[in-house]
Design a protein around this nucleic acid. Structure first.
Lengths: 211, 211, 211, 211
DNA sequence: CATGAATGAGTCTTCATTCAT
DNA sequence: AATGAATGAAGACTCATTCAT
């Protein structure tokens, strides 16, 4: 039973560029880790899903832990890329804020596994290191401080732009979490609108650009 | 070498009322589960800490899972009891709101293991059942809706008392979570004040009772 | 199919004193390690042979390595006990020497697995530590130096009692080794006689007590 | 980026005569096997050291086992060649004996990996076949019997030339082994002198040619 | 021919749960 | 009832060997 010439079926041993293999493994790992959690995930499951042998996984990632952390990094990377992409070319700060909030929530709506991964990272690696998400957030903080200042935050006392960044960043992330944990909650899209309204109140604005 | 009748020296096999034993085991389980997580917790550790044999644990709780869930239930019970205790006898709704918020955060400040347990519950038992915390919250929802109405929420449109309960409840729980996950965050006491200020903005109030 | 009342068959879970269990495991481990070597030995094999679960092995020995080393120590212990037992109460040094040599070789003749274990220890733990055999020998060296002096060694120059101990000790151990490695060799009993004759030549003695 | 025609830079895929390749691989294999042992040796390590791909190894040697055995054969070959070379042209049997003993020990002094390989061969291939060393010895036995007869061994009874060959051959090999296993032993050069003195005693000779 | 990416069988160790005492 | 010795299923990781390029 030689493999068909069309390369359609499962070629037992396909050779691919390292980068592609790595990406395929990460793509397979995210949903598996999300579903079973870090501990309960058998690396074999990821291998099966990625269509490779277990050994190949270990060729790219030294340990199961390294694989998990790489999965997290990849996820966070994709999140911030997506938010950035949605607001490039927009000048009005208020519009940028609204779009950012919406695309942030939209990302998690399309990637329900993301929150799961954050939970599992916390559950298993509490003492190991700063969660990937927050480590990455630090590097982008100034961007949001500037936006908040442009919005006029701080002109009326509390909260200053810095305080608002931390407060809103945390409220948003918290909302994502709660939505994942709690039953019967509004959709994340509605959560986004709540956040925008909350921000509008702080800014004493009434006009909110429609979604 | 029969044990002395006075029960003085190490009573290898002491007999105690079942309820007390159960409570001792739960008290031992909470910090151990919080520190190591559900999976990584060896039941032997809990047995050691509770000062009983491993078999005794299984006499009271059918499985490790049942033990964990009982630990969660016990925790949530203690949380709501504490919040209630702080506000009995107070009539002014605004004061009740502020005190509730503060005592809620205070509980988690004094019980850092609580959030850990919530995280681990989510990580391990996602599909098993509604998290104990939210199941319990449901039973207390009306109480907060009434308080919010008394505060005048909804008179100016969004948010209605119901919306405010869900929004604030979730924001608060989210804040607890984020504080546990993220590095270098304000203390939970400060988080409480932020929440109160946020609520004040929604209510267009300026006076906030001091902590 | 309940276990027979006569306790003859395999009682799935028998409880035994720790010391007995330990001894049973060691007794099972020696021939298995000897046959397959350290690496190729599956701990399960030892468990099966000892009639216990794999977990029980790990209850007594932290790692496979610890189990192997304990097996070695037990072996060397038995060797020196046996040699000592054969010569207690004998006063004539020349007779003690001959009996010691014979019982030394006899031990290895009755325990062919012993040499195997020495080989495997060397093969796997070269850099780990001094081989158990030689570490143990050091503690008994003076005893043999005294015997050699009593025999009059050194009176005619080379070898001194000390040199003779090291030389003969090594020659004997070497002979055991070679016999295990090489095909078609004289029996160990004959090797013993060769050693005695060699010693006799050094001492310029002719009478050799019969075996 | 085609490889330069001058073969100067790292020739990823050099073509060499098969015999040379084979020799290079064997030369690389000996120290690696000696250091890590047969089991613990990763074929990749040998490939790296030989500067070839892992596949190339398998082109010359069907299995890891075959490679190891070929390494042993190569080693033993070099040993006997060296001993022979030292004594060609010498007529006096006693001098030949002394020189042979010395060059035998000298070989192992310059090739500490040799004993390691013998140990590992024994550890892993006990039941597989006669150790390469002894198989090879058989083919050279007569040579030593003749030498011993020329020395006059057997004229005084024990040992006959045949017995002496086996006895001394084994004692020498045993000494090499023991020196490798035991800590704090005299150098192999000193071992050689001990052997010569022992032989002198058997022959009732006193003059020993200086080293 | 030469390479090294890919494979997956093989093993030590842990720990929830059982049960003899 | 209380204990903790005993069990064995489960899973990460290695490495000899193969084979696509």
């Amino acid at each position: 039973m030689p493999p068909s010439a069309t390369e359609g079926a499962s070629p037992r041993r396909s050779r691919k560029p390292a980068e592609q293999r790595r990406a395929e493994i990460l793509a397979a790992a995210a949903p598996v880790f999300a579903e079973h959690g870090y501990r309960a995930t058998d690396v074999q499951l990821i291998a099966d899903r990625a269509g490779v042998g277990k050994g190949t996984i270990y060729r790219f990632f030294a340990t199961k832990e390294a694989l998990f952390l790489a999965t997290m990094a990849d996820l966070v990377e994709r999140l911030s890329n997506e938010v950035d992409a949605r607001t490039t070319g927009i000048d009005d700060p208020w519009e940028v804020a609204c779009l950012s909030i919406r695309s942030y929530f939209a990302f998690f709506e399309r990637h329900p596994e993301a929150v799961e991964l954050f939970v599992h990272e916390r559950a298993e690696f509490r003492d190991r290191c700063t969660p990937v998400y927050f480590a990455h957030s630090e590097t982008r903080r100034q961007r949001w401080v500037d936006l908040n200042r442009a919005l006029g935050l701080g002109d009326q006392g509390w909260p200053t732009p810095e305080q608002a960044v931390d407060l809103f960043g945390d409220l948003m992330f918290g909302a994502i979490f709660v939505n994942a944990l709690a039953p019967r909650r509004p959709s994340l899209a509605e959560r986004a609108e709540e956040m925008i309204r909350l921000l509008a109140r702080l800014l004493r604005r009434d006009n909110v650009p429609t979604a």
